[in-house]
């Protein structure tokens, strides 16, 4: 039963994780406009559950997630054999966040507030990298 459940995980392009529902929704909308498939998650506690039902190609994740540090999640994902190949872009409005995010294993970083064009470009680059 369990194995069967895993077998039918839904494949999508981007999992967007941000504790601000508005922002989470905005980023999803922007990505969808650009033609990506997305799933949103604004409660870090459910990330594990979400990852059991869907199979994203890349993850766009905020650094500070109201109670959970996105960098810790990043580290966990990057250290697990199953998920370490997942590309992760981290975002933050926090000054000096880029350095620590990259140290935690993030493949790219997007500073808030951001330009829509830059968001699209970064995600496109990452997805292209996976494809090639």
């Amino acid at each position: 039963m369990y194995y069967h459940y895993r077998m039918i995980k839904k494949g999508i392009d981007i999992l967007v994780i941000d504790d601000d529902p508005d922002l989470c929704q905005l980023m999803e909308m922007m990505l969808k406009v650009a033609g990506f498939t997305t799933t949103g998650c604004n409660n870090p506690l459910f990330i594990q559950n979400v990852l059991e039902t869907i199979e994203p190609r890349a993850i766009l994740m905020d650094m500070l997630l109201s109670g959970t540090d996105g960098r810790d999640i990043c580290r966990v994902l990057k250290s697990s054999a199953e998920t370490k190949h997942k590309m992760i872009i981290m975002t933050s409005a926090h000054p000096d966040a880029e350095k620590t995010c990259r140290e935690a294993g993030a493949d790219d970083f997007l500073a808030k507030p951001f330009d829509m064009d830059i968001l699209i470009k970064k995600v496109t680059d990452i997805i292209n990298k996976i494809s090639s």
């Binding site: 409005a93 808030k112 507030p113 951001f114």
Partner: peptide, 20 residues
């Protein structure tokens, strides 16, 4: 700074989205 940036990000994002 951080707290101000979050709503700004959203506003800016929607404006850009709408412009697009």
């Amino acid at each position: 700074n951080h707290e101000l940036k979050t709503p700004v990000t959203t506003i800016k994002g929607y404006v850009q989205l709408l412009l697009k």
